[in-house]
Amino acid sequence: MAAQAWSPLRCYWLEAKHELLRLMRTPSFVLPTLLFPAVFYLLFAVLLAGSSGKGAAHYLLAGYGVFGIMGAALFGFGVTVASERERGLLRLKRALPMPQGAYLLAKMVTAMVFAVLISLILAALAVAFADIALSPRQWMLLLLVNVAGVLPFCALGLYIGSRVNASAAPAVVNLLYLPMGFLSGLWLPLQLLPDAIGWLAPVWPSYHLGELAQKVVGGGAGSPAWMHLGVLMVFTGVFFVLARARLARCD
Results as ranks from 00 to 15, higher is better:
residue 236 T to P: 08
residue 215 K to R: 15
residue 238 V to M: 08
residue 84 E to M: 06
residue 38 A to C: 12
residue 39 V to S: 12
residue 229 L to M: 13
residue 90 L to P: 03
residue 15 E to K: 06
residue 169 A to R: 12
residue 166 A to L: 01
residue 200 L to H: 03
residue 93 K to L: 10
residue 214 Q to A: 07
residue 52 S to E: 13
residue 179 P to W: 11
residue 120 L to Y: 08
residue 69 I to P: 00
residue 210 G to P: 04
residue 4 Q to K: 03
residue 45 A to E: 09
residue 206 S to V: 05
residue 206 S to R: 04
residue 120 L to N: 03
residue 38 A to N: 11
residue 215 K to I: 04
residue 79 V to Q: 11
residue 103 Y to N: 13
residue 224 P to T: 11
residue 3 A to K: 00
residue 184 S to N: 04
residue 186 L to G: 02
residue 122 L to D: 11
residue 161 G to P: 10
residue 87 R to V: 00
residue 90 L to W: 01
residue 114 F to C: 02
residue 196 A to D: 07
residue 123 A to W: 14
residue 44 F to M: 14
residue 38 A to Y: 12
residue 169 A to G: 11
residue 71 G to W: 06
residue 183 L to A: 10
residue 218 G to V: 00
residue 201 A to R: 01
residue 232 L to D: 12
residue 218 G to F: 07
residue 239 F to S: 04
residue 146 N to Q: 15
residue 38 A to H: 12
residue 131 D to R: 15
residue 14 L to G: 07
residue 34 L to H: 10
residue 107 K to A: 12
residue 90 L to D: 03
residue 92 L to C: 04
residue 61 L to D: 02
residue 234 V to T: 09
residue 141 L to R: 07
residue 2 A to F: 13
residue 196 A to K: 06
residue 172 V to D: 01
residue 102 A to W: 05
residue 111 A to L: 06
residue 9 L to C: 00
residue 152 P to R: 07
residue 188 L to V: 13
residue 97 P to R: 06
residue 138 Q to C: 02
residue 177 Y to H: 12
residue 71 G to C: 06
residue 187 W to G: 00
residue 176 L to Q: 01
residue 229 L to K: 06
residue 124 A to D: 00
residue 164 V to T: 11
residue 6 W to I: 14
residue 29 F to M: 13
residue 166 A to E: 14
residue 218 G to R: 03
residue 82 A to S: 14
residue 221 A to V: 06
residue 99 P to M: 02
residue 134 L to E: 07
residue 251 D to M: 08
residue 221 A to W: 05
residue 147 V to P: 07
residue 97 P to N: 02
residue 82 A to V: 04
residue 82 A to L: 05
residue 202 P to M: 01
residue 127 V to S: 09
residue 194 P to S: 09
residue 119 S to Y: 08
residue 60 L to A: 02
residue 190 L to G: 10
residue 201 A to V: 00
residue 189 P to K: 03
residue 98 M to Q: 13
residue 93 K to M: 09
residue 71 G to I: 01
residue 111 A to T: 07
residue 78 G to A: 13
residue 119 S to G: 14
residue 190 L to A: 09
residue 211 E to Q: 15
residue 157 G to S: 11
residue 249 R to I: 02
residue 51 S to R: 11
residue 105 L to A: 14
residue 198 G to E: 13
residue 8 P to H: 00
residue 205 P to T: 02
residue 214 Q to T: 01
residue 158 L to R: 13
residue 42 L to V: 14
residue 154 C to R: 06
residue 13 W to P: 02
residue 156 L to M: 14
residue 208 H to R: 09
residue 67 F to L: 11
residue 49 A to P: 01
residue 101 G to R: 13
residue 125 L to V: 02
residue 124 A to P: 08
residue 211 E to T: 06
residue 52 S to I: 03
residue 50 G to R: 09
residue 217 V to S: 05
residue 72 A to Y: 11
residue 39 V to Q: 12
residue 56 A to P: 00
residue 222 G to H: 06
residue 203 V to C: 01
